[in-house]
Design a protein around this nucleic acid. Structure first.
Length: 421
RNA sequence: GGAGAGGUGCGAGAGCGGUUGAAUCGGGCGGUCUCGAAAACCGUUGUGCCCCAUGGGUACCAAGGGUUCGAAUCCCUUCCUCUCCGCCA
């Protein structure tokens, strides 16, 4: 959510941002209502000032034992008028709020303008090892080695759910442990194990609601949502809090499963593990001081890259263009791993700076020191990493011509074997 | 799931429906004293919004409604916390 005052003073920038993000939001209607609102506040508050004075007088009269009946009768009329004006004001503020929460965050200056074709590849790391054979796509080798049950999972839960088995299941668990250990031991994050369902307010705080309600699994009886990413519960840990400036930056990492209905996404890249309704992910979340958030984005990206470097998987980094940027983000880097069997680049991480957008929605503030004015923190998060596509890359890039899969060196102590066969 | 208790400022904790934005204690900050410190004493210590803005106004005692001329204080709903019983990994 943006600051109303900021929108008032920078309407053209906001409109530009909406256009560049290919969102729809009515800034002019908002500005119109803003004027109405301020007029209305003037009326209501002067009426209330009058009422407060009169009320005090009545109290004094009663104390002095005088009859206050006439004054009370007068006040009844004023009181009714105030109630009515208050209602009008509330109506206006509701409308403002509804418009305000639909205005997206403003992209940073360094973000290229355009749709996904304007995404900028800023870095490529590693090379696909030369091979004299064509590796099988992951879904075939996984099936062959008994690592993943696609058919059985579909039978019980529907399509786009999978069940891992044997060393396939262990690979999943090993990757989770390896990634968390790396974030905690080498990169200074604190591990969190949060709830996997949250309330509406939490989804709103990080910006999933109201826009993405259709993409989430929802438990109607309790009005709870299954989390689409750990970003939601971990960022919301500090919702409605006043943090201590000395404690910043706060760096958390969390493993969670992620649930996504992906409504309408069928038919595109949907074979195997590329796109499934439930997947595992290790996430990093940071709460930082505003002046540091752009540096923190770079180090967040680096922390995510280190996972792929340790796994020795080739990848590239993209700066997302405005049209590809999510609603709440000011800037976002995507990391794509190269999968040799599919011969495709697959997104395994998005590292975003939300600046104060989420913090304002979720009311997460800090004081630089005792007595200082509260300020909104900046929030960032990045995957480190999404598991299924990492698994794809391992199964395809580490495949041998004998139809086995070598275990990446850093995973061997977790897996207990050097080769999956 | 059943039965109770409760949610007040940085913390503890008071608050007959009428100068209560909120007593008191503690903490923080500033000062007096001291070579310095401690102790003691004095002062100070919330946030949002609006305006004809070095000032004024208004709102906020979990959240939302209601009663009233007037609500932290009375009523209703929701959320959360705690205790006891039941159930359970």
């Amino acid at each position: 959510m943006l600051d109303l005052k900021y929108i008032r003073e920078n309407a053209h920038l906001v409109k530009q941002a909406i256009a560049n993000k290919r969102e729809k939001a009515d800034v002019d209607a908002l500005l119109d209502l803003d004027i109405k609102r301020r007029n209305s506040i003037g009326e209501v508050e002067s009426a209330k000032a009058e009422q407060n004075k009169a009320t005090q007088k009545i109290a004094e009269m009663k104390k002095a034992g005088k009859d206050a009946a006439a004054a009370i009768a007068d006040m009844r009329r004023l009181s009714d008028a105030i109630k009515q004006k208050d209602e009008e004001l509330k109506e206006i503020e509701d409308q403002i709020y509804q418009l305000l929460i639909r205005i997206p965050n403003i992209p940073h200056k360094s973000v290229p303008v355009g749709d996904e074709r304007a995404n900028l590849v800023i870095k490529t790391w590693g090379e696909a090892a030369e091979q004299d054979f064509k590796p099988l796509p992951h879904y075939e080798i996984a099936e062959k080695l008994g690592l993943i049950d696609f058919a059985r999972a579909s039978r019980m839960s529907g399509s786009f759910f999978v069940s891992y088995r044997g060393l396939g299941a262990k690979l999943e668990r090993s990757l989770i442990n390896f990634m968390i250990d790396l974030h905690v031991e080498k990169q200074g994050y604190t591990e969190i194990f949060p709830p996997f369902v949250t309330k509406r307010e939490a989804m709103f705080g990080t910006g999933q609601l109201p826009k993405l309600e259709e993409d989430m699994y929802h438990c109607g009886v309790d009005d709870l949502f299954l989390i689409p990413t750990a970003e939601v519960p971990v960022t919301n840990l500090h919702r409605e809090e006043m943090l201590n400036g000395d404690d910043l930056p706060i760096k958390y990492t969390a493993y969670t499963p992620c649930f996504r209905r992906e409504a309408g996404a069928y038919g595109k890249d949907t074979r195997g593990l590329v796109r499934i309704h439930q997947f595992d992910k290790v996430e990093m979340v940071k709460f930082v001081k505003p002046e540091n958030s752009w540096d923190e984005l770079e180090s967040l990206l680096q922390n995510a890259e280190e996972v792929l470097q340790a796994l020795e998987l080739p990848y590239r980094v993209l700066t997302l263009a405005t049209g590809d940027l999510s609603f709440a983000a000011a800037k976002c880097y995507d990391i794509e791993v190269y999968a040799r069997g599919l011969d495709k680049w697959l997104e395994v991480s998005s590292c975003s700076n939300y600046v104060d957008f989420q913090a304002r929605r979720a009311n997460i503030r800090f004081r630089r020191e005792r007595g200082a004015k509260p300020e909104y923190v900046h929030t960032l998060n990045g995957s480190g990493l999404a598991l299924p596509r990492t698994v794809i890359a391992i199964m395809e890039n580490y495949q041998t011509d004998e139809g086995t899969i070598k275990v990446p060196a850093v995973l061997q102590k977790y897996m207990g074997v050097e080769r999956i066969k």
